[in-house]
Design a protein around this nucleic acid. Structure first.
Length: 532
RNA sequence: GGGCCCAUAGCUCAGCUGGUAGAGCAACUGACUUUUAAUCAGUAGGUCACAGGUUCGAAUCCUGUUGGGCUCACCA
C-alpha cells in the first residue's frame, strides 16, 4: 500500500463527484446542526424492495453510496454508517415468476413479506430468504453496512415516533399526496396502511378517524367491522412515498441516492418529510443503464449485462470503476466494455501510485481508484494487461491457466510473486472470455501440399529437439521449416502455420509458445492440423 | 405537453470558481526485421450537438433549438 494522507486543502479542492456529494452533505449538516455538531454517526442509506433479486443496480447504488461515504469521512473525519433497509413489511402484490412452489404463496397475497412462508423452504419467511440473499450479495463485495428489516423497525417501535408525527400532520401529508394521484384513488387513499387483525393482510383502506393525541386510527377491516388501533408497534405501516419520508424521519438519514426514475418520488417524499419537520437527506439521482443500442436495460427484456456476467469476465473492482464513471450520464452497459474497463482499472491503479509517489495529492484524489478503495489502493498489479492476456489465450487456443501463467512468466520474467498473485483472477477471466466469445470464431483450414511438408519438417525438428531446448532453438526450427520450402516471404509460412494449426491468421511468437506449451504439445497440434 | 438529467476525438471518459482543447484504448507510420502480438519512437484525429447572449475572452455562465434518457394512474 502506498497510501497518503491528503491535506485539508487537497480535500477541499478535490473535484471528483464523490467529494462534491460529500460537500453537499457537509452543507446540509451545517444547516441542521447550526454550529454545534453532534458526535452521532452520519447516516447513509440505501433501500430495497425485497421481492426483487439483487442486481447490477443494487451493486451500483451501494458502491456509489460507499464512495461518497469514504469521501465524506476523509473530508470531515466524522464517523459514518451505512444502513441497508429492506422494505420487507410491504404486502406481497403478486406471486413472482422465478420461484418454486408458486401455489403455496397464493393464500398469502397482500400479507407482509415477513409473514409469507418461504417458497424455497430454507428460511422462516419469503422476506427472510430474500434478505439473506441480499446480505450474501453485499458481503461478497465486502461492503460495510448495517442491515435493517423494515418489519423489525416497525415492530420494535423504532418507527413509532415517525408514525405518531405522521398523524399529527396527517392533513398536510394528504394535501401533499392527493394532487399527485388519480381521481379514483383519492377517495380511498391513505398514507397509513393498517395490517388486518383478522386476515393479516396489508389493507389499502381510508382512515375513518384519526386521533393524533392517542396515536390511534379507525378503519374498516376486511370483514366490515370497524377497528380502532394504535399506529405503533407494527400494527400499521406507511405507504410508499410516506414510507420513505417516515424512514428518513425515524432514522435521521443524512444521505441517500436513487435512480433517476425515482426523482419525483424523492421530491414528494421530501415535501412530506418537511411537513413532518424533518430535513431531507442529501443525495442525487444517478442515471439508468442502457444496452448497446441505447435501449433501457430491463430485467424483463433481458438485454444488457447482469452482474454475474460481468463478474465472469472481470473483477468487482472493474465493475466499481464502471459505476464510478459518469454516474449522471445514461451509460451503455454491454460486453465490449468489460475488457476495456478491466484494463482501465489497473492503469488507474498504476497512475495512482505514480501520483502518490510524485506527491500530487490533487490528482490522486481525482483518481477513480482512490474512491473505489477509500484511499487504500492495492499496490500489486498484474504483470500484463487483460487485453494482452486475451491475445495470448486466443493465440494459443488454450484455456489452461497453467499454460497462460507460463506465458506470462516468459513475457515478464521479472514479475514479483505479488504481481503474479494479482494475475491469478485475471487468468480465470481471460479463459472465460475466450471460451464464451473467441473460441467459436476460430476456423481451421486444411494445409496445402507445401504447408504439409513444412509442418512435417517442423514436427520432426521438434521431436529431435525434445522438451529441453532453448526458446531460440525452437524459433529457429520454425524458420528452418519454412525456409526449407522456399517461401519467398517467410511471413506466408507463418500465416499458413497459424491458419492451419491455430485456426486464425495471427498467433503467438512461436519460440516462446513452444517453450511454454511444450514441444510434445506442439507436435500434437501439428498432427491435428495435418489430419484436417 | 410539463418537469428533471445528459450531449467533448472512432470508443470510454477527463477538463466545470471563464484565459489559445486532454488521457487511455482503437487507427496509422517507423524501429527491432526471426512473422504476428508485445515493446519502443512517432503521426493523425474534435467549428467541445446547434444558434444566440453576457464578456477583452465561453467546452466552461445564461437563453433557445435539436437529439437521447427518465418521469407525470397503480405498484415499488
Amino acid at each position: 500500500m502506498s497510501d497518503f494522507t491528503p491535506t485539508a486543502d487537497d480535500l477541499k479542492t478535490a473535484r471528483a463527484w464523490p467529494f462534491e456529494e460529500a460537500k453537499a452533505l457537509v452543507k446540509r449538516l451545517a444547516r441542521l446542526e447550526k454550529g454545534k455538531p453532534s458526535d452521532r454517526p452520519i447516516r447513509f442509506e440505501t433501500g430495497y424492495g425485497p421481492s426483487g433479486l439483487p442486481h447490477i443496480g443494487t451493486f451500483g447504488e451501494v458502491a456509489r453510496t460507499t464512495m461518497v461515504r469514504r469521501a465524506f469521512e476523509a473530508l470531515t473525519g466524522r464517523p459514518t454508517e451505512l444502513i441497508c433497509v429492506s422494505d420487507d413489511m410491504d404486502g406481497l402484490r403478486k406471486v413472482p415468476d422465478n420461484i418454486p412452489n408458486k401455489e403455496m404463496l397464493e393464500p398469502h397475497l397482500q400479507k407482509p413479506l415477513t409473514a409469507v412462508p418461504d417458497p424455497f423452504g430454507t428460511h422462516e419467511s419469503f422476506a427472510a430468504h430474500n434478505n439473506a440473499r441480499l446480505k450474501v450479495f453485499l458481503d461478497q463485495f465486502g461492503f460495510d453496512y448495517d442491515f435493517l428489516s423494515a418489519t423489525d423497525a416497525y415492530k420494535s417501535g423504532q418507527y413509532d415516533g415517525a408514525l405518531l408525527r405522521m398523524l399529527e400532520v396527517y392533513a398536510d401529508v394528504m394535501n401533499i399526496i392527493l394532487p399527485t394521484i388519480g381521481e379514483d384513488r383519492r377517495q380511498t387513499y391513505s398514507p397509513i396502511l393498517p395490517v388486518s387483525p383478522t386476515t393479516g393482510r396489508v389493507l389499502y383502506v381510508p382512515m375513518l378517524e384519526i386521533d393524533a393525541k392517542a396515536g390511534t386510527v379507525v378503519f374498516e377491516d376486511e370483514n366490515g367491522e370497524k377497528v380502532k388501533t394504535s399506529v405503533t408497534g407494527g400494527a400499521v405501516k406507511l405507504q410508499w412515498k410516506a414510507d420513505w419520508a417516515g424512514r428518513w424521519f425515524a432514522l435521521g438519514v443524512d444521505y441517500e441516492m436513487a435512480g433517476e426514475d425515482l426523482t419525483e418520488s424523492i421530491k414528494l417524499s421530501s415535501k412530506i418529510l418537511r411537513a413532518m419537520g424533518g430535513e431531507p437527506p442529501a443525495g442525487f439521482n444517478y442515471q439508468l443503464f442502457l444496452d448497446e443500442k441505447g435501449q433501457k436495460i430491463s430485467k424483463s427484456k433481458g438485454n444488457g449485462i447482469s452482474i454475474d456476467e460481468w463478474l465472469r469476465y472481470a473483477s468487482p473492482d472493474s465493475l466499481s470503476l464502471y459505476m464510478f464513471q459518469s454516474p449522471r450520464k445514461a451509460k451503455k452497459l454491454y460486453f465490449d466494455i468489460i475488457p476495456k474497463t478491466a484494463d482501465e482499472y489497473w492503469s488507474f491503479v498504476a497512475r495512482y501510485h505514480q501520483q502518490v509517489a510524485e506527491g500530487n495529492a490533487k490528482k490522486a484524489l481525482d483518481n477513480p481508484v482512490w474512491h473505489l478503495h477509500g484511499g487504500s489502493v492495492p499496490s500489486a498489479q498484474p504483470p500484463v494487461t487483460f487485453s494482452l492476456l486475451l491475445n495470448l489465450v486466443n493465440a494459443s487456443g488454450t484455456s489452461q491457466a497453467d499454460v497462460l501463467r507460463g506465458f506470462v512468466r516468459k513475457y515478464r520474467p521479472d514479475a514479483s510473486d505479488a504481481e503474479m498473485q494479482a494475475l491469478e483472477p485475471m487468468l480465470g477471466f481471460a479463459v472465460h472470455y475466450y471460451e464464451d466469445f473467441l473460441k467459436d470464431k476460430k476456423s481451421y483450414r486444411a494445409a496445402d501440399a507445401r504447408e504439409q511438408k513444412a509442418l512435417i519438417h517442423l514436427r520432426d525438428a521438434l521431436l529431435a529437439l525434445g522438451e529441453d531446448a532453448e526458446e531460440g532453438d525452437y524459433q529457429t526450427a520454425v524458420f528452418d521449416a519454412g525456409k526449407a520450402q522456399d517461401y519467398e516471404n517467410i511471413r506466408e509460412w507463418f500465416t499458413g502455420l497459424y491458419e492451419t494449426v491455430f485456426g486464425q491468421s495471427e498467433g503467438p511468437r512461436m519460440g516462446a509458445f513452444i517453450k511454454v506449451y511444450g514441444a510434445e504439445g506442439m507436435v500434437k497440434l501439428i498432427d491435428e492440423a495435418l489430419a484436417r
